[in-house]
Nucleic acid binder design. Structure first.
Lengths: 213, 213
DNA sequence: CCTCTGATCTAGACGATGACAAGATTAAAC
DNA sequence: GTTTAATCTTGTCATCGTCTAGATCAGAGG
């Protein structure tokens, strides 16, 4: 990769795909998802308007790669949170994974805002599918560990994982794109994610407060 | 309102706003949210390309009106479901409201797909804000009735409502736009919404199955 | 050192879109 | 009947996604 001087740019950028993904993140941060365009991303990287299409076929392809990157990071953070809690307390592990999910969404809103948008993302991208399933897998594992110890043993395992996923995904979505994050008097996301996942743990019938374990 | 014959259109459409909203719904059903454009909507209604802007300032304004319409219908359906369950069983009422939320999202995906998209919707539209808060209010009421009877009494009322909302919103989102609806071997939305809301009711520690009340 | 090949990028064009401005047409208030 | 305001049309502009053809470059093989 030959870098050009300040004026003339090198014909070969050297690392276009990664640079474009970084540009996309910056654009979403500054102007929202609607502000993303192949041309704007190309402009920021200092490359012709048609260059991005050679690496990611499409605008949908570029966003698919960006979403896949997001899923990879999410999987990392969830797995790290899971292993952070003791293995003999699967309920705490599950809660930690859920909280990591929500915090990822808030801290990486650029990615999260794209990760569940089949209308603008090439949804059948194979890499994206693998990364997406990998993220769900972490949650499924955490749920399975709970049931193996007898927690909510009567529930359908798969649907129980869906419930856990729904809870944290809903909270994340309502915070990032919904009315929750915009409300002035509301609690912080830290306490919110803690209490919401705790409610999940205790259910309607149980009156103990497990939000401070 | 003077309707024109088959050929020449009347200069005044007579009911443009409503017709445009209907066109938007049809477009989303056929081509997804990305297919929505002021010009396409105008084309379908048989009106010039700039006409929509006179009623809804913007594309964002048109979608805001469409989203508000969705929130109104959602509120209706949730309230109807709430009153469908006996008043002396608030837990069932809450579950009914949650299930109505999920079913609305699936049955009115055109609307739901737009209702939580501040990036394409004029989020500060006053009518939209009122309608959005109204929908959350139904859920809050159902949650409050539960706590008044002693269910989850120790939980912060507001955050408990947030948890309930998160659960159903997450399930709805994952079904409509996420990987849930696309999975081949998965359960139907009916059983899914039932079991997911039931898991919420029973929590991790309780082992009874309340999915069939 | 030279040539060739494939990868990478540029340049130009086309149709479609959102937004704006200026004017035409109509309904309704007065 | 006249005036006024609402409603809609026509024309225009910058921007965008995508396609095509061609330019430039890196590296392998001789």
């Amino acid at each position: 990769m030959r870098k050009a001087g300040k004026k003339g740019r090198a014909y070969h950028h050297g690392n276009l795909p990664q640079s474009l993904l970084a540009a996309v993140a910056a654009i979403i941060r500054e102007r929202g998802v609607g502000g993303v365009s192949l041309r704007e991303a190309a402009r920021r990287v200092g490359v012709s308007h048609a260059a991005p299409a050679h690496h990611f076929r499409d605008k949908a392809g570029l966003l698919a790669a960006f979403a896949a990157q997001g899923f990879r990071r999410l999987t990392e953070q969830m797995e790290q949170a899971r292993l952070g809690a003791p293995a003999d307390r699967p309920a705490e592990r599950l809660q930690a994974v859920g909280i990591a999910y929500v915090h990822f969404a808030a801290a990486n809103a650029e990615h999260f805002r794209v990760m569940f948008r089949p209308d603008i993302v090439r949804a059948d991208d194979p890499d994206l599918q693998v990364c997406s399933e990998g993220a769900f897998q972490v949650l499924t594992t955490a749920v399975g560990d709970c049931q193996r110890v007898g927690l909510a043993a009567s529930a359908n395992p798969r649907n129980f994982a869906v419930a856990a996923w729904s809870l944290v995904h809903g909270l994340a979505t309502l915070w990032v794109d919904g009315p929750l994050g915009r409300q002035p008097g509301g609690d912080s996301l830290e306490t919110l994610s803690l209490e919401v996942t705790a409610v999940f743990g205790m259910g309607l019938g149980n009156q103990q407060d497990r939000s401070q374990p």
